[in-house]
Design a protein around this nucleic acid. Sequence first.
DNA 1: GCTAGTGTCTACCACCGTTAGAAAACTTGG
DNA 2: CCAAGTTTTCTAACGGTGGTAGACACTAGC
Lengths: 211, 211
Amino acid sequence: MPRGGAGRIKGSQGERARARKELRAALLAAARELAEESQGFEAVTIRKVADRVGYAAPVVYEYFANKRDLLHAVVTNGFADLADRLDAAEPTVEAAAAVVWDFAVEEPYRYHLMHSLADVPFGTSGTPASAVRCFELLKAAVTAAAPDHFASTVDDDAATDLFWAQAHGLITLAFNGRVKGGRERARALLDCVATALRTPSQADSLSRGHE
Amino acid sequence: MPRGGAGRIKGSQGERARARKELRAALLAAARELAEESQGFEAVTIRKVADRVGYAAPVVYEYFANKRDLLHAVVTNGFADLADRLDAAEPTVEAAAAVVWDFAVEEPYRYHLMHSLADVPFGTSGTPASAVRCFELLKAAVTAAAPDHFASTVDDDAATDLFWAQAHGLITLAFNGRVKGGRERARALLDCVATALRTPSQADSLSRGHE
DNA sequence: GCTAGTGTCTACCACCGTTAGAAAACTTGG
DNA sequence: CCAAGTTTTCTAACGGTGGTAGACACTAGC
């Protein structure tokens, strides 16, 4: 008997489809929670995930092809959540930076997985739509920060990449205890970078190198 | 009989100590090679590592407490190699950026492990000496790029953190196919960031936020 | 040659991802 | 309301994993 969810799957076709969706989501959530509790996805086990929602291990394979597929789903799910948050925030670099930072603080292991799981490319057609949404929302914020400078140099994409890279690098280093002043300092540095994007000189130097 | 190394361990105490050191290094190298060949450290197995140097699995535990310890050693080893390369290069940001980039290109999985393995902090006393050496060499390059601006604001450390974070973020994103123009573009952006560090306005904006 | 001690291996443990196949529960059509 | 057929779910198993125990072989030093 299931402990975590809405009971076994039964009912007419429509009900069953809904119940299946719910169970899938529950499995995803279980994997996520397990990772945060156990401080890492290495500890996330098919058996434990199934157990947490009150099922035996093989049920997982009714919803995901294999473990990699499950983790992949956790990642795209994470980008969807992040995109929702970016959407809800003001379209400014500072706000976007805050959203990304807070996300990493709240779910550090999911954040880490989102950026370390192989086979989740961005440029290709296999890119999750949620990830593309994240990039576009971030781009809107970056472009809004210095519209005059980037508009002419055609390089909103590069500026967004750079800003994302700076934020992600700072988060990675800070969360691994590699920034000298600790997390607070890293957070301050990120804010500093964000506001610096607004100054013309910075934007100039960014766009100078590649036209 | 060992395939990969210098024969079984025997001889007088001095010889034995040397042979043990060699075997330890061989195990480390085997783990590294296996990861690059198999495209990831998930595929690195105690048995495979031992096999590659011609031994049975339990030998590994004569040199490392457990798998985590082995990977930890791979990481500190990686920082030592990176530090050596930084030391050999010119003390400029451009050269430092090139060194880090090339390292990531040549051994992407070791590079990734160096930044993703938990329990390898920087600030604390448990920080590997090789990692500290990397940071100091990088700091020297960054400081040399804009000596007047950073000297007065006491923030060489922060500037180094930011540059390292930018480089690392760019590498991570680029190698996961997440930078719009591909790796070449990411490489160009990194160079652009490096040279931008030289312009006073950039240095100003960096140091402005935190005094 | 013998003794200590080191190096190394085989055999095993619990657990992992994953699959096969049977059993149970249910919907559906009459 | 019952039989047929579908779907859900489980137990059992396979090979491989990290890790340990204990036996065996060999070597150094006397």
